[in-house]
């Protein structure tokens, strides 16, 4: 169910990147897209009625269906990378602001 929402989120993120002219807003849209992407990845590995792929001692592990652990591992990495990108983007945004005094791309004079 949530994967449809995830796809819509990806599209919204793209829409944001396409329409917004503000540096912060664009980074924000990137984040939205990434969240959507992460949700989508998780939903790919999701098995209805499965259980979380975490080692526990209580259950007899053989008889249960796990959701696929690999996408989750991917998302963990993707989240971290996403934060890195966002941080870098914000740092650049700050540099842009100190150079032009605005976040609006349209207000910056063309070089």
């Amino acid at each position: 169910m949530l994967q449809y929402a995830a796809i819509v989120l990806i599209m919204l993120g793209l829409y944001g990147i396409l329409t917004q002219r503000n540096v912060i807003k664009i980074i924000l849209s990137l984040n939205i897209m990434e969240i959507g992407l992460n949700l989508f990845i998780i939903s790919v590995g999701y098995v209805t009625d499965g259980i979380a792929p975490i080692m526990t001692t209580n259950h007899n592990t053989n008889s249960l269906i796990y959701v696929d652990p690999l996408p989750q591992a991917l998302v963990l990495t993707a989240i971290v990378i996403g934060v890195g990108t966002t941080a870098l983007g914000l740092a650049i945004a700050k540099n842009i602001y100190s150079k032009y005094g605005t976040f609006e791309l349209d207000e910056m004079e063309e070089e």
Binding site: I10, L14, I17, V23, I26, I27, L30, M33, E34, L37, F40, I41, V44, L70, P71, L74, A78, T85, L88, G89, I92, A93, N95, I96, K99, L105, M108, E111
Partner: peptide
């Protein structure tokens, strides 16, 4: 020292790698 250009690069690069990831995960599925 052209921060807008770098910002462009970052945005496009991130979108690009997101698409790569998307394709990857569909392929994985």
């Amino acid at each position: 020292k052209k921060y807008v250009a770098t910002f462009n690069y970052l945005v496009i690069g991130t979108v690009g790698s997101s698409f790569y990831l998307l394709g990857l995960i569909i392929l994985y599925a």
